[in-house]
C-alpha cells in the first residue's frame, strides 16, 4: 500500500535533522545543508508513492545536490570569495576542531566518514553512493578516522598548552 501524506510528515520529522547533520558536517554551512535537504524532500513529495526506500532516496538526492552546488560554487569561487556571509552558528571547541579536521579531508573521504559516523550507513551502501569499491571505502574510513583522531588529539594538546601558558 502506498504511504499517505501523514507518512510523509512522519518521514520528514524523522529524517530532516539527521540528514541536515550529515550535510552540515560535509559542507560546513548550516544554511546550505538545510537548503539541500529541504530541496530533496521537495523532490520526493511528487514521487512519494513510488519510492521503495524514501530515506535512502532523499539522502542520495541531498548529497547529490550538495555535490552539484559545491561544483558550481567552486567554479564561481573567484567571484564570490570573501563576499559570502557566514550564517553558521557558533559551535563549541570540539565542533570547531572536528569541522576543521573534516575540512582537511578529501571530499569523498569526508563523505564516507560522515555517512559512516553520522548516518550509520553500511560500507556497502557508501560504496554504492560514492561509486567506489568497498575496499576503497574501508581505506577511506581507516585513513579518515586516523586523521580526525590525530587532529582532534592535536587540538586537545594545543588547548591544554594554552591553558598552561595562560
Amino acid at each position: 500500500m502506498p504511504p499517505d501524506k501523514l507518512d510523509f510528515a512522519e518521514f520528514y520529522a524523522a529524517w530532516f535533522r539527521p540528514l541536515t547533520h550529515q550535510l552540515f558536517a560535509h559542507t560546513g554551512d548550516l544554511a546550505e545543508a538545510q537548503d539541500v535537504v529541504q530541496e530533496a524532500f521537495c523532490r520526493a513529495w511528487p514521487r512519494w508513492s513510488t519510492l521503495d526506500d524514501p530515506g535512502a532516496w532523499v539522502r542520495r538526492v541531498a548529497w547529490n545536490l550538495a555535490t552539484s552546488r559545491w561544483r558550481r560554487a567552486r567554479r564561481l569561487l573567484h567571484l564570490t570569495r570573501g563576499a559570502r556571509e557566514e550564517h553558521t552558528p557558533g559551535p563549541g571547541p570540539d565542533a570547531v576542531a572536528l569541522r576543521a579536521a573534516l575540512a582537511a579531508l578529501p571530499a569523498r573521504q569526508r563523505q564516507a566518514v560522515v555517512l559512516f559516523y553520522l548516518a550509520d550507513v553500511p560500507i556497502a551502501e557508501i560504496a554504492e553512493l560514492t561509486g567506489a569499491a568497498e575496499g576503497t571505502v574501508k581505506s577511506w574510513l581507516h585513513r579518515g578516522r586516523a586523521a580526525l583522531a590525530l587532529r582532534l588529539a592535536d587540538d586537545d594538546v594545543a588547548a591544554t598548552s594554552e591553558v598552561h601558558s595562560a
Binding site: 520528514y12 530532516f16 541536515t20 547533520h21 529541504q38 552558528p89 570540539d94 565542533a95 580526525l148
Partner: peptide
C-alpha cells in the same frame, strides 16, 4: 571521533529550524 560528531550535531541542533 564519535564524541566529536555528537558534539558537532549537538552544537547545531539549537539553530536548526526545519
Amino acid at each position: 571521533v564519535r564524541d566529536a560528531f555528537a558534539a558537532l550535531t549537538g552544537s547545531i541542533d539549537p539553530h536548526l529550524r526545519p
